[in-house]
Nucleic acid binder design. Structure first.
Lengths: 336, 336
DNA sequence: GTGAAAGCGCTAACAA
DNA sequence: TTGTTAGCGCTTTCAC
């Protein structure tokens, strides 16, 4: 592999001039520049980025920790992040952590290790937990699922408000027995959505019934299983609110298999508005999240942190939108 | 930020001993090791990975270029790659290129730039195209969609065979007019599948009709649009073969909107077997690909390349499986 | 505008 | 087993 010294020799200039030509060509005479460029081509020279970054102590790398990229919602978040990173002159190092703390820690370690400038965490776990307290916290932004009481900047959705709005929508349609297919207990996000669900129930004077709540893990299968549990028995719910679209689609399948109609027999609602939501049968009523904006905002904030620019807000909250489609309607025999 | 020298001072040893303690503790006396470890903790020391890798000329980074991580099939490929990389002691740098050559080139540049040891390309584009011919080709493996006539090692599916098998399956069910919703013209993969489709038609003595072919871009919307075009007119096909599951699901929606039944009026088949395929209505008959294996094999081959180990095979071909579900059946009025 | 030279933090001979 | 020392390839003063 050729190095800067060889290029300098070929061009008949000093290494400093080669370095300057590459970094700030305007500080070099055109004729010198041409000589250098010719030498670069001739030598097949590629600057050793390792050395460049080592020397200039700037990596232009951002790490993003994603619980699972198989989740289409996260795919959209990443897409937004990638765009914003590109614009800001950073590369995005994507890491599918499979929700494993060890992997999250390992990748986050790239930051104190000078291999990346900052990290975006999309899950409620602090990858720097237990770091030497003396050192300043590395640049990090927490988005989507927020670590309770975290000092880090955050980008979040009003999950409680979103769940409340959707539950209220179902109540307004005339539903009184609304099943809830939740995410895992450990997720703060799912606790907030449960709270929103309870808020709406409370407002309508409907008693909260734990028998109507089922825990899943955000997968299609979990929705299927949740529906199985909730629709059996004599007094089944007239609507099912699922905490993400994939579980809702899983539930849809199970309900149809039971010989019931959606929405006439049971209404179904989701959360996220993944692209599939508009294509399933019936199209899914859901809570839309501006997924790409999570990524975009997180990157902007992280870059500000890294470059020591002031942060406009430390805690950004993004708006949700109720997306009314055909999977939810008034229950059979509703008074209104 | 503390450095190795400070740790050495704190521990009362030389920098070499600190370096050794970190890299190969067994070459250092236990008591020395303890002193060093204590000093590391006290100093809040994190090795500067930039310097480590710069000096030892090994990054343990692998770049994977993905056309779009929003595609659930690629998500599975990545998942397999990540696993294999982890096992082999490498990090995977994921890059969503959005199919843009400029982005692919930029990330591939990390390899000659010594910032990554090799690259996996999942699309039929050579990111090192036009590289100085003098220099040896950087370690690269081409998987999924293969560059025509590439000298690189590859991991591929028998796309032609897969498409032929599915088309034959539809013919065996009694279909004679089979619509094809293809990927973009530019994709080699889609040309192979077209060839397989034509093979099966030829074997059955059915004439190829270009009016039954529609070009899409692998999105839900493309399937929807393709179905719109193909099901209108008096002599519509009795089956639709889509080159991926997402287009098949898009087609499903359109067919139902037209008041037709799947599969009784029109059968639908897909390709890939994404998780959603089993959950749509009706469940999708499709060609299953071992997605995770693409990633796994690609990583294994790339690591072999990087570490100068012999490659068992330069061109791995993975098996497909016909996944028969409910979206395809014999056409109405079929003789058998 | 260009060159000489110092040194980033670390590893790896080699010496002790 | 441990220390000394010479760089890895580059950027960046500071002279000229």
């Amino acid at each position: 592999m050729s190095n800067i010294r060889e290029v300098a020799r070929l061009a008949g200039v000093s290494v400093a001039t080669v370095s300057r030509t590459l970094a700030s060509p305007e500080r070099v005479l055109p004729q010198t520049r041409d000589k250098v460029n010719a030498a670069v081509k001739q030598a097949g020279y590629h600057p050793n980025l390792m050395a460049v970054q080592f020397r200039s102590r700037k990596t232009a790398n951002l790490v993003i920790l994603v619980p699972t990229i198989a989740n289409p919602f996260f795919a959209r978040v990443i897409s937004g992040a990638q765009q914003a990173a590109q614009c800001a002159g950073y590369r995005l190092l994507l890491c599918d952590t499979q929700g494993q703390e060890a992997i999250e820690r390992e990748f986050a370690e790239l930051v104190p290790g000078h291999q990346a400038d900052g990290v975006i965490q999309l899950r409620a776990f602090d990858p720097f937990l237990g770091h030497p307290p003396g050192s300043a916290t590395p640049p990090i932004v927490n988005a989507c699922e927020i670590i309770a009481g975290t000092p880090y900047p955050t980008v979040s959705l009003d999950n409680r408000g979103g769940a409340q709005a959707m539950t209220r929508h179902l109540i307004d349609l005339g539903h009184r027995r609304i099943g809830l297919i939740k995410g895992p207990l450990s997720s703060p996000l799912t606790q907030e959505r449960l709270a929103g669900y309870q808020d709406a129930l409370g407002d309508a004077g409907i008693e909260f019934d734990t028998a109507l709540v089922h825990h899943g893990d955000f997968t299609l299968q979990a929705g299927y299983d949740g529906a199985t549990a909730l629709i059996q028995g004599p007094h089944r719910p007239t609507a099912l609110f699922c905490e993400n679209d994939e579980m809702a689609i899983g539930a849809l399948k199970r309900i149809k298999e039971a010989g019931l109609q959606v929405p006439t027999d049971i209404s179904v609602a989701g959360f996220d508005d993944i692209s599939m939501a508009a294509y399933c049968d019936p199209p899914l009523t859901t809570v839309e999240q501006p997924a790409e904006d999570f990524g975009r905002h997180a990157v902007h904030m992280l870059v500000a942190l890294i470059e020591n620019k002031p942060l406009a807000e430390r805690h950004v909250q993004l708006p949700f939108t109720l997306k009314i489609r055909a999977s939810a309607c008034a229950p059979a025999g509703a008074g209104r």
